[in-house]
Amino acid sequence: MRLLLIEDDVEMACFIRDALLEEGHDLEVAPLGEPGLARAEAGKFDVVIVDRLLPDLPGTVLVERLRAGGDVTPVLMLTALGSIEDRVVGLGCGADDYLVKPFAMAELSARLAALARRGGTIIGELASVGALRLDRLKREVWRDGRRVVLQPREFELLDQLVRQAGRVVSRAMLLEQVWHFHFDPQTNIVETHMSRLRQKLNAGSDQDLIQTVRGVGYRLRTDG
């Protein structure tokens, strides 16, 4: 894999660099957030690894800026902050996974491989539900021929609904499949992302493609 590590801790950066290079990966290291963001925006990386507590630019802000520019490269956030609230904030900014320090190198490698597969190295496919079209390979969405630009979590939310089109998808299932939570973090992270997804999908249309089944979950309409 071609990887970018944005980490200001020299000892930690060297440890990760040496281990990943030994595994045969192509790795670049940026010691600060601003130059790291510039490299992430300019390069074609399979995964970007970001330390959350960078001295010049918080990792959460870095990821938000990366996503705001339309970049969907998978991001793994590293941090010493391991509470549920910290994990929710880290994932809510647009990161795809969150690994708490200290960690085993084997776990980091496994998570990177999983993110690279989700980021587009798996075989994609086209899906159609009514006037909605979803391309899993290119991670693109259209409604009535109009391109809908989604953030990674929004795309994954929609993908889960498309896979179960016409059936109710529970909030617990979305937390597990999209955020990999096997518990309820007691936040409105699903509702917040679903609201953004709806706004983008329904722009210029009178029909809401996503139905809320109160107290249960959400269902994608098959006639829209």
Rank of each mutant, 00 (worst) to 15 (best):
M12T: 15
P74W: 09
L53A: 14
G92L: 06
G36D: 08
R171W: 10
P35A: 04
L76E: 05
V213D: 06
L37H: 02
E140C: 06
L57E: 09
L91E: 00
G224S: 10
G120E: 11
E28F: 13
E176Y: 09
E28W: 05
D144N: 09
H180C: 12
A172Y: 00
H25C: 05
V190M: 05
A13M: 02
L108N: 01
L157H: 02
E140M: 10
M12Y: 03
F103R: 00
M105C: 03
G217Y: 04
I84Y: 04
A113M: 13
L57N: 07
N202G: 02
L81F: 12
I6R: 00
D206Q: 10
Q160R: 13
M77P: 05
D51M: 02
H193M: 12
L91M: 01
D9S: 09
D206G: 11
D51H: 07
L27G: 08
H25S: 14
V178H: 00
L201S: 02
R67A: 04
L76S: 06
G69I: 11
G59S: 00
G166C: 11
V169E: 03
A114E: 10
T73G: 01
R198N: 14
V216I: 11
D56L: 01
P152K: 06
D26A: 14
V72I: 14
I49Q: 02
A38T: 10
R67G: 08
E156C: 08
A203G: 13
F45C: 12
G224K: 10
T222C: 09
F15W: 15
G119T: 10
H25D: 09
I84M: 10
D56N: 05
A30Q: 03
V141D: 05
T121M: 04
G24D: 04
R139Q: 12
L134G: 03
L99M: 01
F45P: 00
W179C: 08
T192W: 12
A127I: 11
E23K: 02
L201A: 08
K200A: 10
R87W: 00
P35W: 03
E23H: 09
G119P: 03
D71L: 14
R87K: 07
L115Y: 03
E85W: 06
V63D: 01
E41M: 15
T79P: 01
A95Q: 06
G90C: 08
L158H: 01
R139M: 09
V48G: 02
W142Q: 14
E23P: 07
R146W: 01
L78M: 05
L53H: 13
Q177L: 10
R221G: 08
D96I: 12
I49V: 11
P74G: 00
G145F: 01
D208A: 14
G43V: 12
L37E: 10
R87D: 03
V162Y: 05
G124R: 08
E64N: 09
D86R: 06
D184L: 04
D144K: 12
V89D: 11
P152N: 03
L53T: 08
E156F: 08
P31G: 07
I16V: 06
A116F: 06
D96N: 03
S109M: 14
R67C: 04
L126C: 13
E85D: 11
L220Q: 10
